[in-house]
Design a binder for these strands. Sequence first.
DNA 1: CCTCTCAAGATACGAACGTATCAATGACAC
DNA 2: GTGTCATTGATACGTTCGTATCTTGAGAGG
Lengths: 196, 196
Amino acid sequence: MPAPAEPEPAGRRRQIAEAVWRIAAERGLQMATVREIAAEAGVSPRVVQYHFTDKHHLLLYALQTLQKENERHGRQRIAALGHDPRVLLRATLEELLPLDDQRRMSLRVMTAYYARSLTDPALAAVFLHEGSPLEDLVAALISAAGLRPSIDAGREADLLVGGVSGLGLDLLHRRRTRADVLRTIDYHLNRILSSG
Amino acid sequence: MPAPAEPEPAGRRRQIAEAVWRIAAERGLQMATVREIAAEAGVSPRVVQYHFTDKHHLLLYALQTLQKENERHGRQRIAALGHDPRVLLRATLEELLPLDDQRRMSLRVMTAYYARSLTDPALAAVFLHEGSPLEDLVAALISAAGLRPSIDAGREADLLVGGVSGLGLDLLHRRRTRADVLRTIDYHLNRILSSG
DNA sequence: CCTCTCAAGATACGAACGTATCAATGACAC
DNA sequence: GTGTCATTGATACGTTCGTATCTTGAGAGG
């Protein structure tokens, strides 16, 4: 019984990380114990122990993997929309919202990790990239889409990224409706960009 | 030894709640065990057990008390500034930022609770007031301060509240400087309001 | 056929968790 | 004095935690 039916030791870590995501999203990060993770992944606790040196490395790996996954999915969705800067800008902002089950789960997990990152430097490092790539991207898209006079693309991007993230969290709590959030985003894009 | 040296059973709950705040802010909510809370509060674990029916009620009480405390402090600070709507608006937004140790601790604690509220209805209820009082207040202040043509106070308030909160979280992570955040807020207030 | 190595099962250990139990203390009414 | 009641000390119970240990199975190389 204790032998590998599949010759793939590579997908095991991924499989376990996905179990962490589901538990963190549905029951919270504090419920992600080794035994619960193993049960959710459909493996024995020993398998979790074998593939990660300790729980801290496991949680870190799950966060890093989810972040890469999000970025990959986001780029795919956005790249399929062409090259119109205004369309890309809108899509980039909407990527921050929990508009489907995948992004809803991801945002819940990331929120749990973010809170823990305030007291865990290893997790904090994942959230602290060099510079502000997302804000820079949004600012560049604003400039490329053409902005109205006396608009500062950088300052607009700074508030937009934080603001849309906040609206996304409100969506998680059902404190706002999706339609209202999208209307707020449209208002501000119309306000910032020149051509209607 | 096991007797009350002070005849004040009223402040005990408060004293214990403050211990929760310090632990949650400095080490995270998952470190707020009954024994740690008791040690931080300078009492025996039995005292914690006696004044709260269980840990869930304790954590809920600590959250509710901190929220009231924040609102009280915020109102005090803002009320001391007079009645100029523009000044009040700026102060209301800055109240969301971790500009001193008190607010820095509070924001860290609230962030930890917020994450947990995603999987805990009792905690979520604390964050879900009726309507959106903060957004409504900001919108009212924008209108009172006088807004430029074709500005929607409600939509501006929606993005401002979320955006400034996001900037505050960036401050916690030292991802932005305080001066940069304040400059971003100034930019948007100048953009929204009519008179320079 | 043998052996070496990777992967996993089975189990256990010490620590820490939330909570329960029982006794003891001090303040106070009478 | 002497009960009474609110509060606290001291201790223990059962559970769950992360992790360590030992063993077993499968496939590859010689």
